[in-house]
Design a binder for these strands. Structure first.
Lengths: 339, 339
DNA sequence: GTGAAAGCGCTAACAT
DNA sequence: ATGTTAGCGCTTTCAC
């Protein structure tokens, strides 16, 4: 049998409430009793049961993390940062991968509730606002990471997607590119929308137009990025630069370009978004818009924990600035392509 | 207040045990009462508390997953597979990243115990056998993934590292390479040991010798892989082929080679190990020894759950075969380098 | 400073 | 077929 608080109490010759007090460092206990109890705990290798204490109303010190897929480097890096901060603050992560499937998401949401997590961090599309609303109404702390749901009053930590999209366009324009295409996700995420919007705006601000044939939607796989890139690169009026709305997609462009015998950046410049490890691993290293993953992970955790601890009653949106990381996948347009 | 089993019982006009019975589908209940209870549950949006039921001796349906780092693609992909299978079987994963730090590992191990997880999957070095032994003595189901601790009676799912190392060497030898180097981890993992041993044996079996200057130890970072590769590639008797004990290290070789103006595979052939996404993304695509990540993830979960459910009393080691995936980072040695 | 006792939400005998 | 009750391990008043 696992040792319980009773075993400790008996062996130390005190009551269980005393033991409870020394464990939680509450109330007054004489240094002597305290030491004795501590000794016995040590001796017996006693570990208080989180389950039992949770039942009496204390926290489970567990947080649910809902993301599309940890195998996606962006979310893997994010999960890692979130966990790091969680550890510092004494919280564990229950990992939930949903592949953006609403049913899976629903299932996890209610599962997390059954498991009495102290809070939930959501990094998926989460368009099942119904369940989400229920949770919010129950006052279960919830925070969004790397995405936003503008119509909800909720804690959010995300990058400034609009700014990022603008920066990407601006960079390409400043290199002299005129025919610039964009590869964008399926628009279920607000981030895609903002990036595209800003991109288009930036071009306009520079007197350029983003025609529809230069906007290609894809799902979130590299395969599809490749397919889309191939389409773009074989079109009669091939763009001289491509903005891929996330690094994974950019890799697809690399592969399509290679198959077609096109060189990056000589024949096409490409810029990505996220600055995952992939960006620094590919050849040539990818110019990309960096999300401050570290900062984002740390901040959601902080936000959520503050809400859990009740230090905070107002929701807030934290929008962090992206950063253009120039590597070698972009270069000034060559004269030949100039027109 | 969250709704409890009492609320349901009262509103349905039955006792709490009846409600409990319909929830767990145990005992006999008339179709009529059952329906009534179910309706009320639906109406109230009642969700049974896992915490409370765990306290009465039932499972928490939560499993701890201890790995070095989810941001490492190999472990990320593994974690994903484990989770997939866990979901199918009704188990959640508590994610623990330790960076192979024994203290962090210890901390997590006892935390997981406090949280009453039903079992633990360990993918780290786990050399703190003491705590681990305690858990085993307590009959907490534990399974090792992607590594082994030969001196412990424990469930293990891993790839056949020896075979993998042998295959790598064999492949290179068959391409005519004679000066072949190996980049190996810090030897804290048994997998490194086996891969190196097999590699050496394979060379010997082919009448080749693995001299000490051709064995380079590194830690687990890409940076260090690069450093090691640079050392190797600038040495007077540069090897014509390198076996990197995991893909990440191989990337380091790619980068060092690029800096030194060496081409892969023309100037050096390189083979990796793991077959993570990285292998297919780099240029040229990396020839590597594939670990059956899917299968491994699924099998540990199966093993562990069978033990949790008590269907199995004997421990077992499941050793899966690796597979040589030939891509474009290896080629027959050129005549010039022939001697 | 310490102990007794109620109760958290649920399960599992044991009754009926 | 359904209800009553005794815990599960802990926290927290409330007494002393």
């Amino acid at each position: 049998m696992k040792t319980t608080i009773y075993d400790v109490a008996k062996k130390a010759g005190v009551s269980i409430s005393t033991v409870s007090r020394v464990i939680n460092n509450t109330g007054r206990i004489s240094a002597k009793t305290k030491k004795k109890v501590l000794d016995v705990i040590e001796q017996l290798g006693y570990q208080p049961s989180v389950v039992a204490s949770a039942l009496t109303g204390k926290r489970t010190r567990t947080i649910g993390l809902i993301i599309p897929d940890v195998a996606n480097p962006f979310f893997a890096e994010l999960a890692r940062r979130v966990e790091d901060r969680g550890r510092e603050l004494g919280f564990n992560l229950l990992m939930c991968n949903t592949d953006n499937n609403p049913d899976t998401e629903d299932m996890y949401l209610s599962l997390l509730r059954q498991k009495s997590v102290d809070g939930i961090i959501i990094g998926t599309n989460a368009r099942n606002h119904r369940v989400l609303r229920e949770l919010l109404e129950e006052n279960l702390p919830v925070a969004l990471i790397a995405q936003d749901i503008p119509e909800l009053m909720i804690d959010v930590v995300a990058v400034d997607d609009y700014l990022g999209g603008y920066q990407a366009a601006q960079h390409l324009v400043s290199l002299g590119h005129k025919r610039i295409a964009i590869l964008v996700g399926n628009m279920n995420r607000t981030s895609d929308k903002y990036r595209l919007e800003a991109f288009r705006q930036a071009l306009e601000d520079n007197g350029l137009e983003l025609t529809e044939d230069l906007v290609i939607r894809t799902d979130y796989s590299r395969e599809d990025g490749k397919r889309a890139a191939r389409e773009l690169l074989t079109s009669p009026k091939r763009p001289t630069a491509i903005f891929a709305c996330f690094d994974f997609l950019a890799i697809g462009v690399y592969q399509a370009a290679k198959e077609l015998g096109l060189r990056i950046p000589d024949d096409v410049s490409v810029v990505g978004f996220d600055n995952t490890i992939l960006a620094s691993i590919v050849d040539p290293p990818l110019t990309t818009i960096a999300q401050p993953i570290d900062e984002m992970g740390r901040q959601v955790m902080d936000l959520l924990v503050r809400e859990i601890e009740g230090d905070k009653k107002t929701k807030q949106r934290v929008i962090l600035p992206p950063e253009l990381i120039i590597r070698q996948s972009t270069k000034p347009i060559s004269q030949a392509d100039g027109r």
